[in-house]
């Protein structure tokens, strides 16, 4: 207990950092659920592909740590763009291959769920077998820096050096901590405004509320569904870069655990609720850290999921509870 109190600031900041990443990934689950009432279990792979895109950009550019600030910012922005593009692209592909036909045929939700799980495995294995796949095209040696040790951790050569900014309660908050938490909050606000104010955002809300009525009112449902997947994918891409800046490595199966946690965050905040996703992420990240500190790291998941169960017992719709459609936002 005294350990928790003595290190409260450190545990809080690192918990928030982790929670910010959970929250951004959770957006993908919550948006798709809001519109389609489907859990897109392949969303973790959307994130994973984005993380590799960011890694590959740094490999291709080959920037050394300690470069001039404009170079560092340039490379990070390029990595962000690549991650968002790839994640958005994979999300769209997923919608096209794994969902569109099922949605059109009005297949039972369980069928779409299985389709998503299948797509998730396929995408993860493609990444894990990428060395052999490029081998089929005779490119194994040319692409070696991108595909070698395909089943192992791949390191993100972060151009930004971690630096302490200021010290609070014995913990030195780093530039990376600040960047991650601030970016997550800014992106959340931007997304919230997008859904509240833009035409597409209104469309998303309309389809979430009542897709048939929306169609009667002239909303192109398929276009809205695609937009939803795309936005979720872009957020996952951003989350991928932020994750790499803090945790430094990715792996073909890194999406699985993060996906489970992000999905949990989405449910915790109230699935279908955009603001709830980030709140759920923060709460989960903090609960994991405090739980680990109180009784040991092996209990972190027990504490986190116990909290989920307790919160859902008292608030079955999650912390914020409103669905995407009914939200005033």
């Amino acid at each position: 207990m005294s350990f928790l109190i003595n290190n409260f600031v450190e545990l809080t900041v690192t918990g928030l950092v982790l929670g910010a990443v959970y929250g951004l990934v959770a957006l993908g689950y919550t948006l798709v659920y809001g519109v389609l009432q489907l859990i897109n279990f392949a969303h973790s792979e959307v994130w994973m592909f984005g993380s590799f895109a960011a890694v590959w950009v740094t490999v291709a550019v080959g920037v050394a740590p300690g470069s001039a600030l404009p170079v560092v910012i340039g490379v990070l922005l390029l990595a962000l763009l690549a991650a968002m593009t790839v994640s958005g692209g994979v999300a769209l592909l997923l919608e096209r291959v794994a969902y569109r036909r099922l949605i059109r045929l009005d297949a039972p939700k369980l069928v779409a769920l299985i389709s998503a799980i299948g797509a998730s495995f396929a995408l993860a294995e493609i990444m894990g077998l990428r060395d052999r796949i490029v081998g089929w095209f005779g490119l194994r040696d040319d692409l070696d820096p991108y595909v070698r040790s395909a089943r192992d951790n791949t390191r993100f050569r972060n151009p930004l050096e971690t630096e302490g900014l200021f010290t609070v309660g014995g913990y030195t908050v780093t530039n990376v901590d600040v960047i991650i938490i601030v970016s997550a909050v800014v992106m959340m606000i931007a997304l919230d405004q997008f859904i509240r104010r833009t035409r597409t955002g209104k469309g998303i809300r309309a389809v979430a509320q009542d897709s048939e009525a929306a169609a009667l009112m002239g909303v192109n449902r398929n276009r809205i569904i695609r937009a939803t997947f795309l936005v979720g994918g872009i957020m996952a891409g951003a989350a991928a870069l932020l994750y790499l800046m803090r945790f430094g490595v990715t792996r073909w199966n890194a999406g699985f655990l993060l996906g489970v946690k992000a999905f949990t965050a989405a449910v915790l905040g109230g699935i279908g609720n955009v603001r709830g996703a980030l709140l759920g992420g923060f709460v989960l990240g903090l609960a994991e850290n405090y739980g680990s500190a109180l009784i040991g790291s092996e209990w972190r998941d027990v504490v986190a999921f116990l909290l989920l169960v307790v919160i859902l017992l008292f608030r079955p719709t999650g912390l914020l509870g409103e669905s995407l459609g009914r939200a005033r936002a």
Binding site: E10, F247, L257, R300
Partner: peptide, 13 residues
């Protein structure tokens, strides 16, 4: 745990 990627609580300890 194997597969874990965030060790912040352990590092704090």
């Amino acid at each position: 745990q194997t597969g874990q990627t965030d060790f912040s609580a352990t590092i704090t300890a």
